[in-house]
Design a protein around this nucleic acid. Structure first.
Length: 216
DNA sequence: GCCCAGGTGTTTC
DNA sequence: GAAACACATGGG
């Protein structure tokens, strides 16, 4: 576990060389990014895109419209993302907070925003950090299942660390750089989608480096 | 037909 | 407190 800083930086370089820039988050506006962050919970992004198109087509891609919509109507638009009844409630909860915060949002300190986001029913640590990093451009490192899996397979992590522990790990070892955090998380997800778990059950480096021990 | 996906909240032991 | 369960669609 020594020289972790070096490991995390090296991993970033390897991923960047393998995949290049990812142009994340896919979303036209910050608000759309926030909505997408809630909708993508345990759901593939292609399904989220359908739901966002539905919202847009129904003139329902604004916070006031989402709040005003009947939960059943909203649920029908969200059908493609799965858990649509749950997520209808969740984005309404989020939008009520978003409206209440109003223009002052951009000026709030990151720690305060994070605490408030986590207090919303339906916003957990990953969703909160997606919103902070990709919609509000705050230097918060996003941890997800791909991050855990990759770190575990590379032997950098044990795998059972809790969310805050992992976030602290990355944020301590990397300089607080929004562009770096945005790109790093995007690369981890890209790699996670790219590798086939059945072909590479043990090691994620195989597909990145020809000199990985498993390829020798 | 079965497993998984850019999680989170509630219920149960 | 941890562990199990509920939420639900679309793609491989």
């Amino acid at each position: 576990m020594d020289n972790l800083s070096g490991n995390l930086r090296l991993l970033y370089q390897i991923l960047f060389r393998a995949y290049g820039r990812q142009y994340w988050w896919p979303g036209a506006t910050p608000f759309e990014v926030m909505v997408g962050a809630v909708l993508t919970q345990n759901t593939s992004w292609s399904n989220v895109e359908r739901a966002i198109r539905n919202l847009d087509a129904a003139q329902c891609l604004t916070a006031p419209a989402i709040i005003a919509a009947h939960p059943t109507t909203l649920g029908a638009l969200l059908r493609p993302v799965g858990y649509f009844n749950v997520k209808a409630r969740r984005i309404q909860n989020f939008c009520r907070w978003y409206i209440a915060r109003g223009e002052l949002l951009a000026q709030f300190p990151t720690v305060d925003l994070r605490r408030e986001l986590l207090a919303i029913n339906g916003i957990g640590p990953e969703t909160a950090d997606d919103i902070l990093l990709y919609a509000l451009n705050r230097p918060v490192f996003v941890i997800d299942a791909y991050t855990r899996r990759l770190g575990t397979r590379l032997g950098i992590l044990r795998g059972d660390e809790n969310y805050e522990k992992l976030r602290a790990l990355f944020e301590t070892e990397l300089t607080p750089d929004v562009a770096l955090y945005q790109e790093y998380h995007a690369l981890i997800v890209r790699h996670g989608k790219d590798i086939c778990r059945k072909k590479h059950p043990r090691c994620n480096l195989c597909v990145l480096q020809a000199n990985c021990p498993h390829n020798l």
